[in-house]
Design a protein around this nucleic acid. Structure first.
Length: 419
RNA sequence: GUGGGCAUAGCUCAGUUGGUUAGAGUAUCAGGUUGUGGCCCUGAGGGUCGUGGGUUCAAAUCCCACUGCCCACCCCA
């Protein structure tokens, strides 16, 4: 039997309501903050991601779904959205129509990693990109949006972490300092961290190895070495969050893995989703637009993993999904009334009722059991003696009461059932 | 890419030291008198025991390989 590709999952009908709920909350909150939805293609020219995300990152280096199409163009299934949105922003000169563009999106993403709890090869993210403003108000706004969405889903075990990476010049200075600090103990670092020392020294802070963290204990912190402007912006973000009652902690070790980040970075983690605890991550990228061929334009954004969020909701039992129900189930008592049932159901459906009936010629008992399983509010019995005199039995399934109603007056019946 | 765990009905799982037609619960379907649900009762269908080899008179059970899934590392949402 053919099975779904490793790391991909079917979302079956019983799971759809929680996805719809999540999507509607996302849509509402972004609308509330006046963000506009953007949809970009599922795949792009490979070089977009290579240049946008950074050649040295793990995403580009080993996780992209890249292949040659029939005209030998290298294309890649999008592993994240920022590069695509910036591409669209540049391609359509959106910065000329409006100086600040606030986008949001909901979309599948693709990364070829080993699946585990909270990690799939095709997964879904919602997120946003605010392009054209360098104000830290935007940084704070995005953190608040992400936090609000998670709160609206009823999540409690959340931690908002923020940090500032400064501008590239100050970051370079800091990297040198860190390199100097660690050079003496390099040989005591874990193998992974020794690799990081050469490739991307900042990520040593990500290490889960205890001895590494021990060595880092007295390391200089980037936050103490960033430039004045970054420092001021960071203060503004902190104050705005505090005023907005968003609890946060400063995590000087929060180093994000994508090359394009500058200044503010943030992450929201959950204690309820296993090892992959980041529900949401983002930050400012003031150089990316220019780097991808546009005019120098600052930007800030975040992405949130929808599977992880729903996993957290599940584990916190925070979602209140109402039971699905239907308005009316039409039961046919006489076998030869199929076309009449069909016609009646169309009438009620035109009146906007959710209607179901039996397509399989089953017994009345079986039809009743089906009606019950579907949480039908009412059942209408078609056939028998009362039908001969133009009447039908209507049964209220919660009270069990039955009443005779007129066959022809279905509009009136629809109104009755709707209440 | 690396490490660990697990593969028996649609789902959750039993299956004794290898030994007859592989079980349960649940779900599905059909019944429990004339045309009526939930609870309850009865019955039915459904399995090449992940795949392929091997050992044996005999394998779901022992051995090997492969595949898949889960979890963790790396990294990220």
């Amino acid at each position: 039997m053919i099975k779904a590709i490793t790391g991909t999952k079917d979302i079956l009908p019983p799971e759809i309501p929680k996805w719809k709920l999540l999507e509607s909350i996302v849509n509402n909150v972004f609308k509330n903050f006046n963000y506009k939805e953007i949809r970009t293609p599922i795949f792009e020219e490979t070089s977009l991601f290579a240049r946008g995300i950074g050649e040295e990152t793990d995403i580009v280096g080993k996780e992209m779904y890249t292949f040659l199409d029939r005209s030998q163009t290298s294309v890649t299934l999008k592993p994240e959205m920022t590069a695509s949105v910036v591409r669209a922003f540049n391609e359509h000169s959106l910065g000329k129509l409006q100086s600040l563009n606030k986008f949001f999106y909901i979309s599948p993403m693709f990364r070829q990693e080993r699946p585990q709890a909270g990690r799939q090869r095709q997964f879904h993210q919602f997120g946003s990109e605010a392009i054209g403003g360098s104000s830290p108000l935007l940084d704070a706004e995005l953190i608040i949006i992400a936090y609000n969405i998670l709160k609206l889903l009823g999540l409690k075990d959340l931690t908002v972490k923020i940090n500032s990476l400064g501008v590239p010049q100050s970051r370079e200075k800091y990297k040198n300092l860190l390199r100097e600090f660690l050079s003496g103990s390099k040989n005591y670092l874990s193998e992974d961290s020794r690799k990081r020392f050469d490739q991307n020294i900042l990520r040593i802070f990500d290490s889960k190895v205890e001895s590494d963290q021990e060595i880092l204990k007295n390391a200089p912190l980037m936050i103490d070495y960033i430039d004045e402007e970054s420092k001021n912006d960071f203060e503004v973000v902190k104050n705005l969050l505090a005023e907005s009652k968003v609890p946060f902690e400063i995590d000087p070790k929060l180093v994000r893995g994508l090359d394009y980040y500058t200044k503010t970075t943030f992450e929201i983690v959950s204690g309820k989703v296993g090892s992959q605890s980041a529900l949401c991550g983002g930050g400012r990228y003031d150089l990316l637009v220019e780097q991808l061929g546009g005019a120098p334009t600052p930007g800030v954004g975040f992405a949130a993993g929808m599977e992880r969020i729903l996993l957290a909701c599940e584990n916190e039992n925070s979602l209140n999904i109402p039971k699905e129900e239907i308005d009316l189930y039409i039961i046919k008592i006489d076998k030869d009334l199929s076309s009449k049932v069909f016609e009646l159901s169309l009438n009620f459906r035109n009146d906007n009722l959710v209607v179901e009936f039996d397509y399989l010629d089953r017994s009345v008992k079986a039809q009743m059991r089906e009606a019950n399983k579907l949480n039908a509010k009412f059942v209408l019995f078609l056939g028998g003696d009362e039908y001969k005199s133009g009447k039908l039995n209507l049964k209220n399934m919660s009270t069990g009461e039955q009443q005779l109603v007129d066959v022809n007056n279905y509009h009136q019946l629809s109104e009755f059932i709707k209440k």
